[in-house]
């Protein structure tokens, strides 16, 4: 795999404050890379440096083999940027915004027309192409911006908080487009988000950044596995004690008996241990009356590495709110 983004000791100092502190990472071509962290962690500043908007105080960043400080023009020609603000021009039609973006990226008129209609189809906006953007909803504007950022077939797409302020349905639609782009068109995506579930669902690899420093990076599954794996809860019909048997199952790390016939089992990958457990229960003439498992989330990884939760106050989804409770049980 070719490296398309190479960052070494990238640092950004604003007077006294260090926004990004000696950050290093590589992104391979075709990878969907998530840059995660709370607001103010340095995500946007990093994206600004990589997209040539902010100067680099120390270190280097290469995008598609061009140095962002030495040859910003060449970097700009290779990248597509979808910022977190609504930048599409309200007073222009959807299609006009896309075509203007094509002009600014020096795409020939004919090619621009063809690609614009393809992209608007991809983001389900073809029937709104001739409408003024001020009539669009927030989700539609974001989708339009995705089309604007892709019109020139960039090698790398930078997505800054792609689902900020979107409702849950629109958000998952957005994920769908991003995944489609990445898998079908092989485009490398660098995205920032503070929705950890979003990163977990989308990204091949993530880096968790806090106070300008990368705390941990790797594929989401790997990071979660490091936390100690899954928790399997089973309840069986009354009968023999299963603790010894369960402790003997391969990979099982810990068995806790809760009440008369309920067990909590800590195991790295539940799907590997489950067949043996089920067989053992059946052999003993018992029946499983209830079974469930929980898998660690990126939120827990985040909590582990930063010592605090992501501050997503606007996130009303119950899933993340349950995390601290879950953690207490796990520990």
């Amino acid at each position: 795999m070719t490296t398309i983004i190479q960052v070494r000791d990238l640092t950004k100092k604003y007077e006294e404050k260090i926004a990004v502190d000696h950050v290093s990472f590589d992104i391979a071509e075709g990878e969907l890379f998530g840059f995660l962290g709370p607001n103010g962690a340095g995500k946007t500043t990093t994206i600004k440096m990589l997209t040539t908007l902010a100067s680099v105080s120390e270190g280097t960043a290469m995008v598609a083999e061009h140095d962002v400080s030495k040859d910003p023009g060449a970097v700009r020609a290779c990248i597509g940027v979808v910022p977190q603000q609504f930048i599409a021009d309200d007073e222009l039609k959807g299609i006009e915004n896309v075509l203007l973006s094509a002009k600014l990226h020096h795409v020939s008129n004919e090619k621009a027309r063809r690609r614009a209609s393809e992209l608007l189809q991809l983001v389900d906006l073809q029937s709104f192409a001739e409408k003024l953007v001020k009539t669009y909803s927030g989700g539609m504007k974001r989708r339009l911006q995705l089309a604007m950022g892709l019109i020139h077939e960039p090698l790398v797409l930078f997505l800054d908080e792609p689902s900020l302020g979107l409702d849950i349905q629109t958000r998952s639609k957005m994920w769908e487009y991003v995944r489609k782009l990445n898998t079908e068109n092989g485009i490398t995506v660098f995205m920032t988000t503070h929705y950890l579930e979003e990163a977990d669902a989308l990204c091949d690899r993530v880096a968790i950044v806090d106070s300008g420093v990368i705390k941990v990076s790797g594929p989401p599954d790997e990071l979660k596995a490091k936390l100690g794996g899954d928790i399997l809860s089973i309840r069986v019909t009354d009968g023999a004690d299963l603790t010894n048997f369960l402790e003997g199952v391969q990979d099982v790390k810990e068995v806790m008996k809760l009440g008369l016939s309920s067990y909590r089992i800590k195991v790295p990958r539940v799907e590997k241990a489950l067949p043996e457990i089920v067989d053992g229960v059946v052999e003993r003439g018992l029946k499983i009356s209830d079974i469930s498992f929980t898998r660690p989330t990126l939120d827990q990884v985040f909590l582990q590495v930063t010592g605090r939760r992501v501050r997503n106050g606007e996130d009303e989804s119950g899933a993340t709110l349950e995390v601290p409770v879950l953690m207490e049980k796990v520990n």
Binding site: T52, L53, G73, A77, P83, Q85, I87, D89, L104, H106
Partner: peptide, 13 residues
């Protein structure tokens, strides 16, 4: 203010 200028600045013009 609305980020349009940043969009222009990241395009190769």
């Amino acid at each position: 203010l609305n980020g349009y200028l940043d969009m222009l600045k990241t395009s190769p013009i």
